[in-house]
Design a protein around this nucleic acid. Sequence first.
DNA 1: GCCAACGTTGGC
DNA 2: GCCAACGTTGGC
Length: 156
Amino acid sequence: MNHWLMKSEPDVYGIDDLEKASTDYWDGIRNYQARNMIRDQMKPGDLAFFYHSNTKEPAIVGIMEIVSEGYPDDTAFDPNEKYYDPKSDPANPRWYRVDVRFVRKLRRPITLRELKTIPELADMPLLRRGNRLSIMPVTPEQWHRILQLEEQAPAA
DNA sequence: GCCAACGTTGGC
DNA sequence: GCCAACGTTGGC
């Protein structure tokens, strides 16, 4: 089983939206590296952290489960969609999405600020300068370390 | 709102 | 295939 971290802007789609929906599409991925992970590596049963980006206090806020294989993101074919891409051909789709299911919120948000203070997490792409991947793999060690943080009072 | 970093586009 | 211009991401 693989672990992931997936970013979303809470103003657009936050953990509360997923909780309400229970299961939803994770669509709008328009980056090749992220696309490849969705299409080739994500499997039902994988777990992912839900990360709030581009907000006052960026943080990991919850856990979700991947519940589908990657499959073509048909929002790319619809001119009325925000993420319409005229170059994605339905016969040879360029973009993919997965379905995700709400598992739970974390007891407390684990902020980016706090993550930066943990030496074992320094290798996470999330914490590396200039990295803008919206979906990234998380090692089992990193996953468990972050869940340990959840049990502790915030360090900072 | 600013701006660094980085991906994409398109002229040549 | 190079690379400048442009657009986007996302922390601050």
